[in-house]
């Protein structure tokens, strides 16, 4: 117990430093974009948040599959905690996007493929969290929300494809090659530093949140023992 606590403190310290480094890179190191100006710097928080959210939802899906196979309570806890943090990050994506879009596109919101997909994702995982609270039996809640978690994740690429065919305005990925892509190397470094920092932050939050859930379960167990005894 003590060992894991000190490990956690190290992890919290590390992710704190990483976020500070990310701030330094995003605001001081990265050059200002020519046409968009300083507002482009939102990019360094927007993209890493989106990455962390997708990572979280991927973990929800994988943990749900493992839970259905072997019924491990740990996997169930991991799935719920990842879903909560994923919703947090996708909310950040949905808030930072419009802030950038208003000066650059002239509108806060368009029903573009990536925007709509993020919004639908947000709705799916809010539904996932609601579902858990709606089922009285804990075992049943775990099983049914695992099924929903898998179906929800399977839906992500299909939602994306369908809306992409419909219409798209979102900038194409700027760092994965293809024509018209390309970032200043300093911007690219900044982006990777930020993605690294956000991933570390995500992992720390996930470990903290699962720890709290375990503590809650232990507390409930002790309470029930106390009342019975």
């Amino acid at each position: 117990m003590k060992n894991s606590n000190s490990l956690l403190i190290v992890l919290i310290g590390l992710s704190g430093c990483a976020i500070l480094a990310a701030l330094f890179f995003a605001f001081l190191y990265a050059p200002t974009e020519i046409s968009m100006g300083d507002v482009q710097r939102i990019f360094y928080f927007h993209v890493p948040s989106a990455w962390s959210a997708f990572l979280a939802f991927f973990i929800v899906c994988i943990a749900s599959i493992i839970f259905l196979i072997n019924g491990s309570a740990k996997m169930d806890t991991l799935a719920v905690c990842a879903a909560e943090i994923g919703v947090l990050f996708i909310t950040i994506v949905l808030l930072t996007g419009p802030l950038w879009a208003k000066p650059v596109w002239g509108t806060f919101w368009t029903w573009d493929a990536r925007l709509t997909t993020s919004f639908v994702l947000w709705l799916i995982y809010i539904a996932y969290l609601m579902l858990r609270r709606q089922i009285p039996s804990e075992e049943k809640a775990a099983r049914l929300s695992a099924v929903f978690g898998i179906i929800g994740f399977l839906d992500v690429p299909i939602v994306y494809m369908s809306i992409r065919w419909w219409r798209t305005l979102h900038p194409q990925p700027v760092f994965a090659g293809g024509s018209g892509s390309g970032l200043d190397p300093r911007m690219l470094t900044t982006l990777f530093v930020c993605i690294g920092a956000f991933t570390l932050l995500f992992v720390t939050l996930l470990i903290l949140r699962t720890g709290i859930t375990y503590a809650e379960k232990e507390l409930a167990l002790l309470k029930s023992k106390l009342y019975k005894g």
């Binding site: 709509t116 639908v120 709705l123 799916i124 539904a127 609601m130 579902l131 709606q134 089922i135 009285p136 049943k140 049914l144 099924v147 929903f148 179906i151 929800g152 839906d155 299909i158 939602v159 494809m161 369908s162 809306i163 419909w166």
Partner: peptide
Amino acid sequence: ISAHTKSSEVMLPILLFPVSVPVVL
């Protein structure tokens, strides 16, 4: 799934509509 929940009439559309976005579109 929603038949197991406390308020199934509300939960069904909340679960179903976001996932069926591609079909409707």
